[in-house]
Design a protein around this nucleic acid. Structure first.
Lengths: 195, 195
DNA sequence: GTCTATAATTCGATAGAC
DNA sequence: GTCTATCGAATTATAGAC
């Protein structure tokens, strides 16, 4: 249940998100954001408490989306292969619906300050652990090749990490179905013994 | 033929590189760098012309290393499968010898300013094009699956992009041979028809 | 909600003595 | 090569009138 947000604030949040994605968080000044909205810097503080809080909002929101998704996968009765397919699908669905936030998740998280930085890194480690569990199960049940768990988990996570770029800087050609089909084939073939 | 560099300057460049990797380019101030060296800010300008020039040095150096490597692969008589293996090997070798510069290549390039930013992005596009050519050849000769060329090129490049992390934040456990073996198996199995 | 004005700090970089 | 001192610009954020 998302909080009710005024259309004006929503527009500010959307525009700021795109601008931070394009220029980077540190390089985007409050003046830049105000100029984009056509008003003065001080008006920004009608909508948010600080630049830092703005980044936190974007990052923790999309981070929790990923957690919700992978929890559903983990709690399902899928076998490891089906779970891995669902994981690729989750990534593409979330990325296609919120590409700029996923971009921040990849590139801008390090601009958080403690204690939020630590909170974020811990939460991300939890997500990666959930991925690791799926892969571990796949290896143990001999659906997946006997990889080193750390290496293959990083490789799988990294394989989907570019997808936001497909939607932010490439959108006109983006076909989510084809993307999911091909990326699934690449990753599953790389991971599975018989596929 | 690298220019002769004083030991003092070399130490400054090495320490600065690590610090920029750890804190990020924008978040690392000239004062931070001076403190790390135990002298005053103004002394930095004995070694470099500007903060911007420092970043350019790191990025274009490692960028050219990748070009040199992939040019050797491309000019070889290897078939596409062998070229792809050599490409994974190139990535791991360069990353293990210059992990922090590879880290900047992944995370900090966007802090360049024009005209250097455009120059860098163009040069990177040339590198990606060279990778694309290898994959295209593999698909045409039916060693590789009939993937969409753009998608699979991005996926392959992304699959190795996390490796710097293995050496910068993880070094004690890093075994380059095992890493190369496993990552090669993952990527080649994902790409090849019979492997 | 929008503005003007400005506080308070931090940044990269330079001048010039030793 | 190292220091002190400082400049000028840019930054986030706030105060207070309308």
């Amino acid at each position: 249940m998302p909080l009710k947000v005024s259309p004006r604030k929503k527009k500010f949040l959307d525009e700021s998100l795109k601008m931070i994605h394009e220029k980077g968080y540190k390089a985007t000044t409050m003046r830049d954001l105000a100029d984009r909205m056509g008003f003065e810097v001080s008006n920004i503080y009608n909508f948010i408490d600080s630049k830092e809080a703005l980044l936190e909002t974007y990052l923790f929101q999309i981070s929790e989306d990923f957690h919700t998704g992978i929890d559903h996968i983990q709690e399902s009765s899928y076998d490891p292969v089906e779970k891995m397919k669902a994981l690729v699908s989750l990534n593409i669905n979330l990325t296609s619906s919120k590409p700029y936030q996923v971009g921040l998740l990849v590139n801008e998280w390090r601009n958080l300050k403690d204690p939020k930085l630590t909170e974020f890194v811990d939460r991300r480690a939890e997500y990666e652990e959930k991925v690791r569990v799926i892969i571990k199960e796949g290896i143990e049940k001999k659906h997946f090749r006997p990889f080193d768990l750390d290496i293959i988990t990083h490789a799988v996570l990294s394989s989907v990490r570019w997808v936001y770029y497909w939607y932010t800087d490439h959108a006109e050609e983006a076909n989510p179905y084809e993307l999911e089909k091909q990326l699934t084939e690449f990753i599953l073939s790389g991971v599975c013994i018989n596929e």
